Amino acid sequence: MALNTPQITPTKKITVRAIGEELPRGDYQRCPQCDMLFSLPEINSHQSAYCPRCQAKIRDGRDWSLTRLAAMAFTMLLLMPFAWGEPLLHIWLLGIRIDANVMQGIWQMTKQGDAITGSMVFFCVIGAPLILVTSIAYLWFGNRLGMNLRPVLLMLERLKEWVMLDIYLVGIGVASIKVQDYAHIQAGVGLFSFVALVILTTVTLSHLNVEELWERFYPQRPATRRDEKLRVCLGCHFTGYPDQRGRCPRCHIPLRLRRRHSLQKCWAALLASIVLLLPANLLPISIIYLNGGRQEDTILSGIMSLASSNIAVAGIVFIASILVPFTKVIVMFTLLLSIHFKCQQGLRTRILLLRMVTWIGRWSMLDLFVISLTMSLINRDQILAFTMGPAAFYFGAAVILTILAVEWLDSRLLWDAHESGNARFDD
């Protein structure tokens, strides 16, 4: 018995066209964080690309023209004298008006014999932002004059995390709450300039795509075929072959399989920071003279006294001054041990922890910024005066060393310790 099946006739004509040209192939790229070699397709503007294995951002879609970056830099340069030299806060102490600005706080630190601690604050609040705007201006002028731009481009990517104007702005709020127990506070004209400078700096850093600047100024022929001998440069993120001198053909720094002496430098910085954190938390970090009496505060006791007036601000200072430094030390110690013992479990967790400490590390400088600003506000000789204690130097040095330890660690070593050939990683 035959089955009668109805015929289905399409209502619209289906047209099949042959592909007349070869589909576009992607360029081969190595991930600078996990060293995976993959094919990167062509990316349009405002599109980002991520590593298929570790999800690290390979290409950032946010990109401004150099002219727009230069305009932002010149605007920031105009704001800087007002943000640093004009009063941020006014207080009335014992019937006398006192003005506080950024430069005055750094000068008070240096004047009291601790120039190293003052230079830490100076670099993060004044030096690094000033280098940022002058570097962008150098790129703008240098591109037109045919100057060598490689050193500036190499420095810009590392400079971003040292620009800490946003953290200093939080420190202004913390210092205001600490001082309000002794005097009446009012915002100064410099505060508005400083807030504007923070906003412009944040926007500029978020749109400063150094890798795209490398592509514009020093374009290189990408690798179009897969080759395990391809290496990625950690300076400019170019994937290719080393030249005859073993250097990256684009930025001219040595092109090595792994960062040289990464573990040794990381261990040295980490152990030194552990040693410095002990006096930083045991010795007094601030000293207040009130009517001839002397009151010393460690980091913890200062947080407890701050909690009596504002528990939320005390929580912020606790996280930045105690929780973050010790968390960074514990995480980095764990990561280094996992590399030495070739741990194969929990790779995803370790990668996330490394990215976390990379982002939060700079916030530990908050305590030094609060001390710097408070020193310029309260300084009335023996009637009422505020000065920093010996722990300030140890704390600042420990924070900087932990930042350097994270920067010096080559994250690809975590993958080397893991089993080879993993296309995915999980716990």
Rank of each mutant, 00 (worst) to 15 (best):
F192P: 06
L282P: 02
W214T: 15
L337P: 05
T5P: 07
R355G: 14
I403C: 10
H46C: 06
R226V: 14
Y50S: 08
G421D: 03
S420K: 10
M80S: 09
V121P: 03
V189E: 08
G146E: 03
R221T: 14
F333G: 11
S135G: 05
I371C: 01
S286A: 12
P52T: 09
L230G: 14
G113R: 07
S176F: 08
I371P: 03
R256W: 09
P284G: 12
R355K: 14
L93W: 02
L93D: 00
H90L: 04
I351W: 15
L368T: 07
C236A: 00
V203W: 09
V203M: 08
T334N: 13
Q112W: 05
E211Y: 14
A405P: 02
L94C: 01
T202N: 15
G188I: 05
L149C: 15
G293L: 11
Q344K: 12
I322L: 12
G190Y: 01
A398S: 10
R362T: 03
Q108T: 13
R150N: 06
L234M: 11
P24I: 05
R350G: 10
L414E: 03
L336C: 11
D416Y: 12
Q244W: 15
T204G: 08
I303D: 03
G105Y: 01
G302Q: 00
I311L: 14
I43K: 11
L337S: 10
T134E: 06
S273P: 05
G85E: 09
L263R: 14
C233L: 00
G173Y: 01
P242Q: 11
H207C: 15
I351G: 11
T204S: 14
L354G: 14
A175M: 00
L366I: 11
F333M: 13
L66N: 10
G142D: 01
N422T: 07
G361P: 00
W415K: 10
K12H: 07
K328T: 00
T327I: 10
V133Q: 04
L404F: 07
M155E: 08
N379G: 01
L337K: 13
A385R: 04
P219L: 12
W267Q: 14
G173A: 11
M36P: 00
F326T: 09
T117I: 02
R17E: 09
V275I: 14
S372M: 15
W84G: 07
H252P: 03
W92S: 02
S338N: 14
E228I: 11
G315N: 15
L88C: 02
E21R: 08
I299N: 08
R250K: 11
L283Y: 04
F192W: 13
Q7A: 07
I98S: 03
G26W: 10
K111A: 09
M147P: 02
D181G: 03
G61K: 11
S135Y: 01
V189C: 12
R424I: 06
A137I: 05
E212C: 15
L257Y: 14
W408A: 04
E407N: 12
N143S: 15
A56W: 07
K12Y: 07
G113S: 11
T67K: 10
P6H: 07
M1N: 00
D166H: 15
L337I: 12
M375S: 14
W84T: 07
P242E: 12
S420Q: 13
R350W: 13
L130H: 10
S411D: 07
L153F: 02
P81R: 08
G26V: 09
S364Q: 00
G171S: 15
R258L: 15
D426N: 14
L283V: 09
I96F: 03
I322Q: 05
V370P: 01
L353M: 14
I378P: 00
A183D: 00
M155D: 02
R62H: 09
I303K: 00
T15H: 06
I311T: 14
F123C: 01
L3P: 01
L277A: 04
E157N: 15
N209E: 11
W359V: 13
R260S: 06
I96D: 01
C54K: 00
Q33D: 08
A73V: 07
M304P: 07
G95W: 09
M109P: 02
L191H: 04
G127L: 01
S376F: 02
S286Q: 00
N143A: 15
G118H: 04
V170R: 01
R294D: 02
L145V: 15
D181T: 02
L139T: 05
H207P: 15
P284M: 08
W359G: 05
P279G: 14
R424T: 05
F38M: 11
M80H: 15
I253Y: 08
R245C: 12
S206N: 15
D60K: 07
A272N: 03
H261T: 09
M365D: 04
L153D: 00
A175C: 10
G421V: 03
L257R: 06
L156K: 06
L270M: 11
R216C: 12
L283D: 06
T201Q: 09
W359I: 12
V331Y: 10
Q220K: 14
I172W: 02
S372C: 13
I319L: 15
L290K: 01
M103P: 05
I303G: 09
R350M: 09
S308D: 10
Q220L: 14
L401N: 11
A423I: 15
I339S: 07
E419P: 08
